[in-house]
Design a protein around this nucleic acid. Structure first.
Length: 370
DNA sequence: TACGCGTGGCC
DNA sequence: TGGCCAAGCGT
Protein backbone atom coordinates (compact mmCIF):
# COMPACT_ATOMS: atom_id res chain seq x y z
CA UNK A 1 0.00 0.00 0.00
CA UNK A 2 1.14 3.50 -0.70
CA UNK A 3 1.62 5.68 2.33
CA UNK A 4 2.25 4.86 5.94
CA UNK A 5 -0.33 4.91 8.66
CA UNK A 6 0.88 6.67 11.76
CA UNK A 7 -0.97 6.30 15.00
CA UNK A 8 -2.06 9.63 16.41
CA UNK A 9 -0.17 10.15 19.65
CA UNK A 10 -1.80 11.83 22.59
CA UNK A 11 0.26 13.00 25.51
CA UNK A 12 -1.51 13.17 28.80
CA UNK A 13 -0.45 14.99 31.95
CA UNK A 14 0.31 12.92 35.05
CA UNK A 15 -2.70 12.32 37.32
CA UNK A 16 -1.10 14.09 40.24
CA UNK A 17 -0.29 17.28 38.30
CA UNK A 18 -2.51 20.09 39.51
CA UNK A 19 -3.08 22.17 36.37
CA UNK A 20 -5.14 24.96 37.89
CA UNK A 21 -2.87 25.53 40.87
CA UNK A 22 0.21 25.51 38.69
CA UNK A 23 -0.93 28.16 36.23
CA UNK A 24 -2.41 30.28 39.03
CA UNK A 25 0.85 30.28 41.04
CA UNK A 26 3.06 30.75 37.97
CA UNK A 27 1.02 33.72 36.76
CA UNK A 28 1.01 35.32 40.21
CA UNK A 29 4.81 35.06 40.29
CA UNK A 30 5.09 36.45 36.75
CA UNK A 31 2.84 39.39 37.56
CA UNK A 32 5.11 40.46 40.41
CA UNK A 33 8.54 39.41 39.15
CA UNK A 34 8.56 39.83 35.37
CA UNK A 35 11.38 41.90 33.92
CA UNK A 36 10.87 45.29 32.31
CA UNK A 37 11.87 44.63 28.71
CA UNK A 38 11.63 46.99 25.73
CA UNK A 39 9.29 44.66 23.83
CA UNK A 40 6.90 44.45 26.79
CA UNK A 41 5.82 48.10 26.55
CA UNK A 42 2.74 46.99 24.64
CA UNK A 43 1.43 44.05 22.61
CA UNK A 44 1.77 45.56 19.16
CA UNK A 45 2.09 42.50 16.89
CA UNK A 46 4.96 44.00 14.88
CA UNK A 47 6.95 44.84 18.03
CA UNK A 48 6.35 41.33 19.36
CA UNK A 49 7.34 39.81 16.02
CA UNK A 50 10.65 41.68 15.75
CA UNK A 51 11.55 40.83 19.34
CA UNK A 52 10.82 37.14 18.86
CA UNK A 53 12.97 36.92 15.74
CA UNK A 54 15.88 38.71 17.45
CA UNK A 55 15.57 36.52 20.54
CA UNK A 56 15.91 33.28 18.59
CA UNK A 57 19.03 31.62 20.08
CA UNK A 58 20.12 35.02 21.37
CA UNK A 59 20.40 36.42 24.90
CA UNK A 60 18.07 39.11 26.15
CA UNK A 61 20.95 41.45 27.09
CA UNK A 62 22.43 41.11 23.60
CA UNK A 63 19.12 41.83 21.91
CA UNK A 64 18.12 44.95 23.89
CA UNK A 65 20.26 47.58 22.06
CA UNK A 66 19.65 45.98 18.65
CA UNK A 67 15.92 45.99 19.28
CA UNK A 68 15.81 49.66 20.28
CA UNK A 69 17.84 50.67 17.23
CA UNK A 70 15.84 48.45 14.87
CA UNK A 71 12.47 49.77 16.06
CA UNK A 72 13.70 53.36 15.72
CA UNK A 73 14.86 52.71 12.14
CA UNK A 74 11.96 50.49 11.08
CA UNK A 75 9.00 51.35 13.37
CA UNK A 76 6.30 49.66 11.28
CA UNK A 77 5.78 46.73 8.94
CA UNK A 78 5.57 49.24 6.08
CA UNK A 79 8.84 50.92 7.03
CA UNK A 80 10.65 47.59 7.13
CA UNK A 81 9.07 46.44 3.88
CA UNK A 82 10.18 49.57 2.04
CA UNK A 83 13.73 49.76 3.45
CA UNK A 84 16.79 48.83 1.36
CA UNK A 85 17.98 45.34 2.31
CA UNK A 86 21.48 46.68 2.95
CA UNK A 87 20.14 48.91 5.74
CA UNK A 88 18.34 46.00 7.37
CA UNK A 89 21.47 43.85 7.32
CA UNK A 90 23.49 46.75 8.72
CA UNK A 91 21.05 47.00 11.63
CA UNK A 92 21.56 43.28 12.21
CA UNK A 93 25.38 43.43 12.00
CA UNK A 94 26.94 41.52 14.92
CA UNK A 95 23.70 39.85 15.99
CA UNK A 96 24.33 36.64 14.05
CA UNK A 97 22.08 34.24 12.14
CA UNK A 98 21.75 36.84 9.42
CA UNK A 99 19.10 34.94 7.47
CA UNK A 100 16.75 36.01 10.22
CA UNK A 101 17.04 39.61 9.02
CA UNK A 102 16.53 38.72 5.37
CA UNK A 103 13.59 36.46 6.17
CA UNK A 104 12.05 39.08 8.45
CA UNK A 105 12.10 41.68 5.71
CA UNK A 106 10.81 39.23 3.11
CA UNK A 107 7.95 38.39 5.47
CA UNK A 108 7.24 42.08 6.12
CA UNK A 109 6.89 42.61 2.37
CA UNK A 110 4.57 39.60 2.23
CA UNK A 111 2.45 41.02 5.06
CA UNK A 112 2.22 44.35 3.23
CA UNK A 113 1.16 42.83 -0.06
CA UNK A 114 -0.98 39.90 0.97
CA UNK A 115 -2.43 41.06 4.29
CA UNK A 116 -2.58 44.84 3.84
CA UNK A 117 0.09 45.41 6.46
CA UNK A 118 -1.74 43.47 9.21
CA UNK A 119 0.13 40.50 10.65
CA UNK A 120 -2.24 37.52 10.38
CA UNK A 121 -3.72 36.04 13.56
CA UNK A 122 -4.28 32.40 12.58
CA UNK A 123 -1.75 29.55 12.95
CA UNK A 124 -2.24 28.55 9.30
CA UNK A 125 -1.55 31.99 7.84
CA UNK A 126 1.19 33.17 10.15
CA UNK A 127 3.14 29.93 9.70
CA UNK A 128 3.50 30.65 5.97
CA UNK A 129 5.69 33.69 6.68
CA UNK A 130 9.45 33.26 6.29
CA UNK A 131 11.29 32.86 9.56
CA UNK A 132 8.17 32.08 11.59
CA UNK A 133 8.29 28.50 12.83
CA UNK A 134 6.26 26.71 15.51
CA UNK A 135 7.74 28.64 18.43
CA UNK A 136 7.53 32.12 16.93
CA UNK A 137 4.02 31.49 15.59
CA UNK A 138 2.83 30.50 19.05
CA UNK A 139 4.61 33.43 20.67
CA UNK A 140 3.06 36.06 18.37
CA UNK A 141 -0.40 34.49 18.41
CA UNK A 142 -0.50 34.22 22.20
CA UNK A 143 1.28 37.46 23.19
CA UNK A 144 -0.16 39.80 20.55
CA UNK A 145 -3.52 38.16 19.88
CA UNK A 146 -4.19 36.17 23.08
CA UNK A 147 -4.71 32.93 21.18
CA UNK A 148 -4.28 29.79 23.36
CA UNK A 149 -1.31 28.45 21.36
CA UNK A 150 1.84 26.94 22.91
CA UNK A 151 5.21 28.69 22.42
CA UNK A 152 7.81 26.07 23.23
CA UNK A 153 11.40 27.27 23.30
CA UNK A 154 14.46 25.92 25.10
CA UNK A 155 13.29 27.38 28.41
CA UNK A 156 9.91 25.69 28.21
CA UNK A 157 11.49 22.36 27.25
CA UNK A 158 13.74 22.55 30.30
CA UNK A 159 10.96 23.67 32.64
CA UNK A 160 8.60 20.93 31.49
CA UNK A 161 11.31 18.27 31.54
CA UNK A 162 11.76 18.98 35.24
CA UNK A 163 8.18 19.82 36.10
CA UNK A 164 6.85 16.55 34.66
CA UNK A 165 10.06 14.48 35.00
CA UNK A 166 10.38 13.93 31.24
CA UNK A 167 13.53 12.07 30.16
CA UNK A 168 13.14 12.66 26.41
CA UNK A 169 16.20 14.15 24.68
CA UNK A 170 15.29 17.84 24.20
CA UNK A 171 17.73 18.03 21.26
CA UNK A 172 15.32 15.88 19.23
CA UNK A 173 12.54 17.63 17.29
CA UNK A 174 9.95 15.08 18.40
CA UNK A 175 10.39 16.20 22.01
CA UNK A 176 9.29 19.73 21.16
CA UNK A 177 6.11 18.34 19.61
CA UNK A 178 5.42 16.34 22.75
CA UNK A 179 5.95 19.35 25.02
CA UNK A 180 3.66 21.42 22.79
CA UNK A 181 0.88 18.89 23.34
CA UNK A 182 1.43 19.05 27.09
CA UNK A 183 1.64 22.86 27.27
CA UNK A 184 -1.55 23.16 25.25
CA UNK A 185 -3.40 21.35 28.05
CA UNK A 186 -2.14 23.82 30.66
CA UNK A 187 -2.63 27.19 28.95
CA UNK A 188 -5.22 29.27 30.82
CA UNK A 189 -7.54 30.82 28.24
CA UNK A 190 -7.61 34.58 28.57
CA UNK A 191 -3.99 34.77 29.71
CA UNK A 192 -2.21 32.67 27.10
CA UNK A 193 0.38 35.35 26.30
CA UNK A 194 1.34 35.95 29.92
CA UNK A 195 1.39 32.22 30.62
CA UNK A 196 3.78 31.44 27.76
CA UNK A 197 6.02 34.32 28.77
CA UNK A 198 5.85 33.21 32.41
CA UNK A 199 7.13 29.75 31.49
CA UNK A 200 10.07 31.30 29.62
CA UNK A 201 10.69 33.84 32.39
CA UNK A 202 10.79 31.00 34.92
CA UNK A 203 13.36 29.19 32.77
CA UNK A 204 15.45 32.34 32.39
CA UNK A 205 15.41 33.46 36.04
CA UNK A 206 14.77 30.42 38.26
CA UNK A 207 14.74 27.06 36.48
CA UNK A 208 18.29 27.62 35.17
CA UNK A 209 20.12 25.10 32.98
CA UNK A 210 22.98 24.26 35.38
CA UNK A 211 21.76 25.34 38.77
CA UNK A 212 17.99 25.39 39.18
CA UNK A 213 17.01 27.72 42.02
CA UNK A 214 14.40 25.40 43.46
CA UNK A 215 14.28 27.07 46.86
CA UNK A 216 12.91 30.26 45.34
CA UNK A 217 10.75 28.59 42.69
CA UNK A 218 7.10 29.68 42.70
CA UNK A 219 5.98 26.25 41.44
CA UNK A 220 8.28 24.14 43.61
CA UNK A 221 5.25 22.23 44.95
CA UNK A 222 4.27 20.99 41.49
CA UNK A 223 7.70 19.89 40.27
CA UNK A 224 8.04 16.12 39.89
CA UNK A 225 11.80 16.22 39.31
CA UNK A 226 12.27 18.18 42.54
CA UNK A 227 10.08 15.68 44.40
CA UNK A 228 12.49 12.94 43.25
CA UNK A 229 15.61 15.08 43.72
CA UNK A 230 16.66 14.71 40.07
CA UNK A 231 16.33 18.35 38.98
CA UNK A 232 20.08 18.57 38.36
CA UNK A 233 19.96 15.57 35.97
CA UNK A 234 17.32 17.14 33.73
CA UNK A 235 16.77 17.94 30.98
CA UNK A 236 18.43 15.19 28.97
CA UNK A 237 20.23 16.73 25.99
CA UNK A 238 22.36 15.11 23.29
CA UNK A 239 25.79 16.59 22.63
CA UNK A 240 26.68 18.74 19.62
CA UNK A 241 29.40 17.83 17.15
CA UNK A 242 32.67 19.77 17.43
CA UNK A 243 33.20 22.47 14.76
CA UNK A 244 35.04 21.59 11.57
CA UNK A 245 38.37 23.34 10.93
CA UNK A 246 38.61 25.55 7.81
CA UNK A 247 41.94 27.16 6.82
CA UNK A 248 41.58 30.44 4.94
CA UNK A 249 43.94 32.90 3.25
CA UNK A 250 42.46 36.40 3.30
CA UNK A 251 43.46 39.31 1.06
CA UNK A 252 43.32 43.01 1.91
CA UNK A 253 43.80 44.36 -1.61
CA UNK A 254 44.45 48.10 -1.77
CA UNK A 255 43.95 50.18 -4.88
CA UNK A 256 44.59 53.79 -3.97
CA UNK A 257 42.42 54.50 -0.93
CA UNK A 258 39.95 51.70 -1.70
CA UNK A 259 39.96 48.00 -0.74
CA UNK A 260 38.51 44.99 -2.51
CA UNK A 261 35.42 43.48 -0.87
CA UNK A 262 32.98 40.76 -1.78
CA UNK A 263 29.28 40.23 -1.00
CA UNK A 264 28.58 36.66 0.04
CA UNK A 265 25.85 34.59 -1.67
CA UNK A 266 22.20 35.05 -0.70
CA UNK A 267 22.08 31.59 0.83
CA UNK A 268 24.21 29.78 3.37
CA UNK A 269 26.86 30.95 5.81
CA UNK A 270 26.79 34.73 6.50
CA UNK A 271 24.36 35.13 3.61
CA UNK A 272 24.38 38.59 2.03
CA UNK A 273 27.18 39.89 4.27
CA UNK A 274 30.28 41.64 2.94
CA UNK A 275 33.79 40.26 3.47
CA UNK A 276 37.39 40.48 2.35
CA UNK A 277 38.20 37.96 -0.37
CA UNK A 278 39.18 34.58 1.03
CA UNK A 279 40.59 31.34 -0.37
CA UNK A 280 40.32 28.01 1.40
CA UNK A 281 43.51 25.96 1.27
CA UNK A 282 45.43 23.35 3.26
CA UNK A 283 48.75 24.79 2.05
CA UNK A 284 51.34 24.71 4.83
CA UNK A 285 54.15 26.92 3.54
CA UNK A 286 54.25 30.65 3.07
CA UNK A 287 54.81 30.45 -0.67
CA UNK A 288 52.08 27.86 -1.25
CA UNK A 289 49.60 29.92 0.76
CA UNK A 290 50.44 33.03 -1.25
CA UNK A 291 50.21 31.07 -4.48
CA UNK A 292 46.74 29.78 -3.56
CA UNK A 293 45.66 33.33 -2.73
CA UNK A 294 46.98 34.81 -6.01
CA UNK A 295 45.27 32.10 -8.05
CA UNK A 296 42.00 32.50 -6.18
CA UNK A 297 41.97 36.28 -6.66
CA UNK A 298 42.68 35.93 -10.38
CA UNK A 299 40.09 33.23 -10.92
CA UNK A 300 37.23 34.57 -8.80
CA UNK A 301 37.75 38.32 -9.12
CA UNK A 302 39.83 38.72 -12.26
CA UNK A 303 42.37 40.69 -10.27
CA UNK A 304 46.18 40.44 -10.19
CA UNK A 305 47.93 41.57 -7.01
CA UNK A 306 51.28 41.62 -5.30
CA UNK A 307 51.47 40.22 -1.78
CA UNK A 308 53.22 42.76 0.45
CA UNK A 309 53.28 41.24 3.93
CA UNK A 310 51.32 39.15 6.44
CA UNK A 311 48.94 41.42 8.35
CA UNK A 312 47.50 39.22 11.08
CA UNK A 313 46.31 35.78 12.03
CA UNK A 314 42.78 35.24 13.35
CA UNK A 315 40.64 32.42 14.63
CA UNK A 316 36.86 32.63 14.63
CA UNK A 317 34.60 29.87 15.92
CA UNK A 318 31.04 29.40 14.69
CA UNK A 319 28.60 26.80 16.05
CA UNK A 320 29.71 24.30 13.44
CA UNK A 321 32.93 25.75 11.91
CA UNK A 322 36.26 27.08 13.06
CA UNK A 323 37.96 29.53 10.73
CA UNK A 324 41.74 29.88 10.87
CA UNK A 325 42.38 33.05 8.89
CA UNK A 326 45.75 34.35 7.69
CA UNK A 327 45.41 37.88 6.39
CA UNK A 328 47.77 39.29 3.75
CA UNK A 329 48.34 42.91 2.81
CA UNK A 330 48.26 43.12 -1.00
CA UNK A 331 48.65 45.80 -3.66
CA UNK A 332 46.42 45.82 -6.72
CA UNK A 333 48.30 45.49 -10.00
CA UNK A 334 45.67 45.02 -12.67
CA UNK A 335 42.15 43.80 -13.39
CA UNK A 336 39.05 46.05 -13.47
CA UNK A 337 36.36 43.68 -14.65
CA UNK A 338 35.02 42.62 -11.25
CA UNK A 339 32.16 40.14 -10.86
CA UNK A 340 28.84 41.69 -9.73
CA UNK A 341 29.34 40.61 -6.11
CA UNK A 342 32.68 42.43 -5.74
CA UNK A 343 33.82 46.06 -5.64
CA UNK A 344 36.50 48.42 -4.43
CA UNK A 345 35.21 50.46 -1.50
CA UNK A 346 36.54 53.50 0.36
CA UNK A 347 36.47 53.81 4.15
CA UNK A 348 33.29 55.88 4.03
CA UNK A 349 31.58 53.27 1.91
CA UNK A 350 32.71 50.42 4.16
CA UNK A 351 31.00 52.10 7.10
CA UNK A 352 27.59 51.61 5.52
CA UNK A 353 28.02 47.92 4.68
CA UNK A 354 27.39 44.92 6.95
CA UNK A 355 30.38 42.73 7.85
CA UNK A 356 30.34 39.63 10.07
CA UNK A 357 32.24 39.67 13.35
CA UNK A 358 34.85 37.37 11.81
CA UNK A 359 36.01 40.30 9.64
CA UNK A 360 35.64 43.17 12.12
CA UNK A 361 39.26 43.07 13.32
CA UNK A 362 40.49 43.38 9.76
CA UNK A 363 38.16 46.30 9.26
CA UNK A 364 39.53 48.04 12.36
CA UNK A 365 43.11 47.50 11.25
CA UNK A 366 42.43 49.06 7.86
CA UNK A 367 40.72 52.01 9.49
CA UNK A 368 43.65 52.69 11.84
CA UNK A 369 46.13 52.36 8.96
CA UNK A 370 44.93 55.60 7.43
C1' DT B 1 15.61 13.64 11.03
C1' DA B 2 19.90 15.86 11.24
C1' DC B 3 22.38 19.40 10.01
C1' DG B 4 23.66 24.29 8.70
C1' DC B 5 23.30 28.63 10.52
C1' DG B 6 26.54 33.51 14.61
C1' DT B 7 27.78 35.49 18.49
C1' DG B 8 29.03 36.53 23.24
C1' DG B 9 28.79 35.29 28.13
C1' DC B 10 29.50 32.12 31.68
C1' DC B 11 31.97 28.96 34.85
C1' DT C 1 40.33 27.37 28.74
C1' DG C 2 36.74 25.30 26.28
C1' DG C 3 32.38 23.45 26.25
C1' DC C 4 27.80 24.82 27.06
C1' DC C 5 24.22 27.77 26.51
C1' DA C 6 20.58 31.53 24.63
C1' DA C 7 12.73 33.49 23.40
C1' DG C 8 14.70 28.32 16.56
C1' DC C 9 14.17 28.04 11.55
C1' DG C 10 14.95 26.19 6.86
C1' DT C 11 16.06 22.44 4.28
Amino acid sequence: MAGKKRKALTYTLPEEFHVFGFSRDLLAWYDSQKRDLPWRINRDPYRVWVSEIMLQQTRVETVKPYYQNFMAKFPTVAALAEAPEEEVLKAWEGLGYYSRARNLQAAAREVQERYGGVIPDTPEEIATLKGIGPYTAGAILSIAYEKPEPAVDGNVMRVFSRLLYLTDDIAKPATRVKVEHLVRQVIPHGRAGDFNQALMELGALVCLPRTPQCLTCPVFDYCLARKEGVQDELPVKGKAKPPRLVRLQVAVVKRGDAVLINKRPEQGLLAGMWEFPMVETDADTRSLKQEALLQGLRKRFGVDVEVIEPLMELTHTFSHLQWHMEVWQCDWIEGDDLPPNARFATADELAGLAFPVAHQKILETIKSDR
